[in-house]
C-alpha cells in the first residue's frame, strides 16, 4: 500500500513540476504613444525616454541626481513656434554639495543657442528659467543640453559623480 502512495505522490509532484514548464502566451502590450511631452517629471517612467543622458536612477519616486552633463528632449508647447516658450528646470541644491565643492554653476543650451548660466551658492530649491525664442522651437522635438561646472566626486561605495537634484524640466507656454 505504501508503495502505491509513494507512486501517487511522485506522479503528482512530476505532473505539478512538468506543468510549470508552460509556454507563455502573449499578453496585451503596453500602450504605445508617439506623443513627446513638454513637461517631464523626471522620476516618472513615461519621462525616461526623453531623458537622453546624464541622469541617474530615480530616487524617492520624485527626483534624480544628474551627472556633470545631462540632456533632455522636449516637445515645444502649442504655439511655441510663434510665441517662443519658457524653459524651466526645477532643481535642488543640497547643502552637503555646497559644503564640499562650493557654489555650482548651471548652464544650458539648445542647438545654436547658448543660454545664460546661473550660479547657486545657497542650498534649497530653485527654478532655472530661460526664455527660448520661437526660432529655436520650430521642430517637433528640441534637444536641450545642461552642464555643471563641478560635481561631487565619488565617495565610498557610491561611484557616481553627483551634480544637482532635478525634479522636473519643462518648456512652458508664454
Amino acid at each position: 500500500m505504501w508503495r502505491l502512495k509513494l507512486i501517487f505522490v511522485l506522479v503528482a509532484i512530476a505532473l505539478l513540476l512538468a506543468n510549470c514548464k508552460r509556454p507563455r502566451q502573449a499578453r496585451a502590450g503596453s500602450a504605445s504613444s508617439d506623443r513627446l511631452l513638454s513637461v517631464l517629471n523626471v522620476a516618472d517612467d513615461s519621462a525616461a525616454v526623453q531623458l537622453v543622458h546624464g541622469f541617474y536612477d530615480p530616487e524617492g519616486n520624485a527626483w534624480r541626481w544628474t551627472g556633470p552633463r545631462f540632456s533632455v528632449v522636449l516637445a515645444p508647447p502649442p504655439g511655441a513656434n510663434s510665441r517662443g516658450a519658457l524653459l524651466v528646470l526645477k532643481v535642488t541644491v543640497p547643502q552637503n554639495s555646497l559644503d564640499s565643492i562650493g557654489p555650482i554653476t548651471l548652464s544650458a543650451s539648445l542647438p545654436g543657442l547658448p543660454l545664460s548660466p546661473q550660479t547657486y551658492a545657497q542650498p534649497g530649491e530653485f527654478s532655472y528659467s530661460r526664455d527660448i525664442p520661437a526660432s529655436s522651437l520650430a521642430a517637433d522635438a528640441v534637444n536641450i543640453d545642461f552642464q555643471l561646472d563641478k560635481t561631487l566626486p565619488p565617495s565610498g561605495a557610491d561611484s557616481r559623480h553627483l551634480g544637482i537634484v532635478v525634479t522636473s524640466v519643462a518648456l512652458e507656454s508664454r
Binding site: S30, L36, V73, A141, V142
Partner: peptide, 26 residues
C-alpha cells in the same frame, strides 16, 4: 522601443523616434 521604468515596461517607439531624430540632428 521599450523604456524600462520603475513600474514596468512602456512601449515608447513613436516618441523615441522623435527623440533619436532630435539627437541625430545635433
Amino acid at each position: 522601443v521599450l523604456v524600462v521604468g520603475v513600474h514596468g515596461v512602456i512601449d515608447v517607439t513613436g516618441s523615441y523616434r522623435k527623440v533619436l531624430a532630435a539627437e541625430m540632428a545635433n
